[in-house]
Design a protein around this nucleic acid. Structure first.
Lengths: 226, 226
DNA sequence: ACCGTAAACTTATCGCTGTTAGGTTAGGTG
DNA sequence: CACCTAACCTAACAGCGATAAGTTTACGGT
């Protein structure tokens, strides 16, 4: 019995020492892995530290608390979401296809990152619901800068959806009743699908592809000028 | 300083002794209250016991574990939800109004009971996602009886929605493409609104009444025969 | 009136959690 | 070589859900 504990650092006596940036990145990597495989509650600081080959307290030199781990992970998630929703406005294709693609990408990306999605869109962690003005516009001075930045990033993906819809309205392809409400409704539909599948599994519903198709169909027809 | 601790039972030495049924009901009452005001994680067994005027362990004589408390509370929630969605099929009014009313009632009820809603529809507690067959039909023998019952109850509200839509399809008021998908999509929209407002607050979105209105409008127009 | 018994409740404790204070060690600079 | 600080550790705290085993209370049968 030389190495009694696997998953710990190889040499118990001689632990590797890393510069802060690398260690931070490594902690994030293993934390993300544990959060995804075991969930936020189950993945304890001790287990994360174990997987990283350090003691739990060392984590606190790189992150304020457990929530900060998730916040950092969520930041990456938002970047990916924005990227996924930034489809090239290829003018050649049908403009309505842009909206369709937007929603498909949103749902796909959400389901591909269920744990991060749950974190940022399905739990009211304090740092994700700061005191905001209408439409999530941060009220300057009330909220720490980094939180504001993250919130802005979060709203960015919604902004893409909203401006997309506004463009279609302007082009006369959608009704002009309530563009803002349209965006909220489209988001609600997409979010509803993602969150239901995340919590209840996909076996209880219409197969996801057909579901998205049907939903988009309803939305398109429902928002078209009569 | 006669009563040093408020919130505890009045007389520390002479605690009231209650028959099981009453105590159980009382525990449920204070637990529901704490869950709603402080959230599930924050409301600890010790705090619940304190508020009930007993020791934490006494709770375990009435409930298997903390989750069982929520399960019991959720059962009441489901009863209320089904009741809220069981609108009298008043044949005199527009049949499409039934669907409209169904969705309004769902959203309203969900927002009126955010903590229970979060529990049953936004978290994957094991007893709410047992191994189920397609469409949530319980596979007999695999799951404890009481869980099956609750799951059935849970699906009942969805069943109301589904049969409502099927009736409208049969009457030719809605397209016949994919009635099952329609029901899922309508639910996704309603659930999306409720869960977004629960996690993000209502200040970031279209005012709730207009939001519901817009959403229902889209759904109706989107499902109508072309 | 007594007594047994079971229901109702408690004490003590376990292993776990996130987190902190303060001490130690290694790597690089003057 | 001496020093300093970044990187990491040990020890510990308060609180968590949960269990085992002990105590008290009320009530039904004799």
């Amino acid at each position: 019995m030389v190495n009694e504990k696997v998953g710990r650092a190889a040499n118990p006596g001689k632990r590797t020492r890393l510069p802060a940036a690398e260690r931070r990145a490594q902690i994030l990597t293993v934390a993300r892995d544990l959060f995804v495989t075991q969930g936020f509650e189950q993945a304890s600081m001790r287990r994360i530290a174990d997987a990283a080959g350090i003691t739990p307290t060392a984590i606190y030199d790189h992150f304020a608390d457990k929530e900060a781990l998730l916040t950092a992970i969520a930041a990456d998630f938002f970047d990916g979401l924005v990227a996924a929703m930034t489809v090239p406005p290829d003018a050649a294709t049908d403009p309505l296809d842009l909206l369709r693609q937007l929603m498909i990408n949103y749902v796909r990306y959400g389901l591909a990152h269920p744990n991060e999605y749950r974190l940022v869109f399905m739990t009211s962690l304090s740092r994700f619901v700061p005191t905001l003005g209408h439409r999530g516009l941060p009220c300057a001075g009330e909220v720490p800068e980094d939180v504001v930045q993250k919130t802005v990033k979060a709203m960015q993906s919604f902004g893409i959806l909203q401006t997309g819809i506004e463009r279609l309205v302007a082009a006369g392809l959608l009704r002009a009743d309530d563009p803002e409400g349209f965006a909220d409704s489209v988001w609600a539909m997409g979010h509803g699908i993602v969150s239901l599948v995340i919590t209840k599994g996909d076996s209880n519903f219409t197969p996801i592809d057909r579901w998205i198709d049907t939903s988009i169909g309803i939305l398109m027809d429902g928002m078209r000028p009569r």
